[in-house]
């Protein structure tokens, strides 16, 4: 029982961070039909902004995290939308997908070139204390990661459902033409979506880098896991991405302990295949038809 508790806590903590990245996939898809294959690199990059703040500029950790947030909003939010998505979107989804793949490579190689290929230590933002709960060692770091991720996603849901701006964003995502007729500034709403995605990526980066260490190639794994989580949960639902992320985190840990550590990486892929075969819209997603 203690073992199961520990697996669940570790799995949920890791899964909640995957969920933050997965929510970014769903947000951008709903707002602008953008599948951002650079999402993993979006999570990798803010950690290096934090390190630059701390080691190059000599700033305290929390100031560096704020700096990373601002830089992410500017680069991964505003610049990404203005310089890549807006010029490419009129040409269709495929060129945009290819552009995001290229962007991912550019970000990865740039970090490697300017910061180095080796992993960098990243400071833990939460205490490393471990508590014994019913025989299981539960770390404060895991609990804090889970709580912060849940608060971020919960806050986003509240923002989207309970505020005027949030409802305008939803309206813009569901039917931009009608939303515009009703006086919604659709372009601004889409920009907000990109900014929220950048902020979520920064939170995910700061939470996961103490575990993964900051490395230019972190986005490869994170991007793939988040993409699978988004599909498994439902690409067009934020709560779907949340469920997908948590599920992947828990299944990964359960399979490593009870099935095979060697084949743990295959389990999320098997889940993905099963979902695509049995419920293509994802666990919580809704079927979506598009004219071709």
């Amino acid at each position: 029982m203690a073992e199961l508790i520990q697996i669940l806590v570790s799995g949920l903590a890791a899964g909640s961070i995957y969920a933050l990245a997965a929510v970014g996939f769903t947000l951008l898809w709903q707002a602008s039909q953008t599948i951002n294959f650079a999402q993993g690199e979006f999570v990798m990059l803010p950690a290096f902004f934090v390190l630059i703040g701390m080691t190059v500029l000599g700033l305290p950790m929390w100031t560096s995290i704020l700096l990373a947030l601002v830089l992410s909003l500017l680069i991964l939010g505003v610049a990404f939308k203005r310089l890549i998505v807006e010029p490419m979107l009129p040409h269709g989804t495929l060129p945009l997908v290819i552009a995001t793949i290229a962007l991912g490579l550019l970000l990865k190689e740039s970090v490697k070139e300017f910061y180095g290929a080796t992993a960098q230590p990243f400071p833990a933002i939460f205490p490393q204390t471990v508590y014994n709960v019913a025989g299981a060692s539960v770390s404060v770091q895991d609990i804090c990661n889970l709580v912060v991720s849940m608060l971020a996603i919960g806050g986003l849901q509240l923002f989207l459902n309970r505020t005027r701006t949030g409802r305008c964003m939803q309206a813009s995502a569901q039917n931009p033409a009608v939303a515009e007729i009703l006086g919604v500034n659709v372009k601004r709403m889409v920009l907000y979506t990109f900014l929220i995605n950048a902020a979520l990526a920064t939170i995910a980066s700061v939470l996961i880098s103490p575990i993964y260490l900051a490395k230019f190639s972190n986005g490869e794994t994170l991007g793939l896991v988040a993409f699978i989580a988004a599909i498994v949960g439902g690409f067009n639902q934020i709560r779907g991405a949340l469920v997908g992320g948590l599920l992947i985190g828990v299944i990964d840990n359960l399979s490593a302990v009870y099935i095979s550590a060697q084949y743990r990486a295959a389990m999320p892929l098997l889940l993905l295949i099963a979902i695509i075969l049995l419920r293509p819209q994802g666990l919580l997603g809704t079927p979506e038809g598009r004219t071709v």
Binding site: S10, G11, I211, D252, N253, V257, A261
Partner: peptide, 20 residues
């Protein structure tokens, strides 16, 4: 006996098995 993959990032399950 716990094998792990190259560049594995999450060792929580591995450590748990060894610890127990």
């Amino acid at each position: 006996d716990v094998p792990a993959e190259q560049a594995q990032a999450d060792f929580s399950a591995d450590v748990l098995k060894l610890k127990n």
